[in-house]
Amino acid sequence: MFGHVWRHNAPHPHHHRPDPVAADALAGEPVEDFIIDVHSHPGPGTNFFYQGGGVDDLLRVMDRTGVDYSCFSAYTAIGPDFVRGNELVAGAVRDHPTRVIGFAVPNPNYPELAKEELIRRVDEQGFRGIKIHSTTHEYPIHGPNYIPVYEFADDHRLPILSHTYDSPARIRQLATTYPNARFIWAHAIWQHIRTPDLALTVRDLPNVFCEMSGSGNRRGQIEAFVRVAGVESAVFGSDYPVLGQTWQMGNVAHADLTHEEKRKIFSENIRGVLGL
């Protein structure tokens, strides 16, 4: 790209020297650290348009940003057809096992089929996580049809990525009821501003992580979350292509955190959970 001249010419005050991650992002170069994006949805937008969105397109964006692995759950799976969506991801895992981690989606409105899907995708096809979407499936995360999902995750020690704006009390209840499951709360870091109890709650829950994707991008919000919850509670997730992976790359790369803290967010906190 065009980064090298920029990297050396960019006017930085002497008191602020960018770390290697920020320097890469300033230049538009792939970030060299090992990076896992825990939140992405291959497939066309179901109710709005973005260019691309297919598996190859998402991989191409990963090449540009420097993301090594992305956790895929198909857009159509969190929408109308979770079987079709899981099948799309199975193909991506099969074709790109060193870039794609499959997260199986169960729709709790089809409980029998959902259980079959989890068994097939995880036990037979190597998916390493579960994605639930209580909003689009319009089913509460504490509803009875999710209990087999949580039990499955607990038995298999799997991460569950959940789009939810539920209360910190609900998060604590699930995390302590299913201690072998790992809960990744999507969009939670920007929620921290409106719900400060969230960071206080997850701080004491070793099987809970929060990611930063979403529409709120207040200046300093990641740093504020880390100060309260501890950096071990934060993981990198972009929700791309619904949003931009590049957008969240900039959010983390330029956060006022140390390089070591960024490394933890980018991969070290979640790497073991995903078996990498």
Binding site: N217, N251, A255
Partner: peptide, 24 residues
Amino acid sequence: KLPWQAVGPPHAELMYADIDDDAR
């Protein structure tokens, strides 16, 4: 959109965009 929004995200959107240098 400073000061309400962090610079990093919109900056990265421009820098990582697959466009030529003149367009950027």
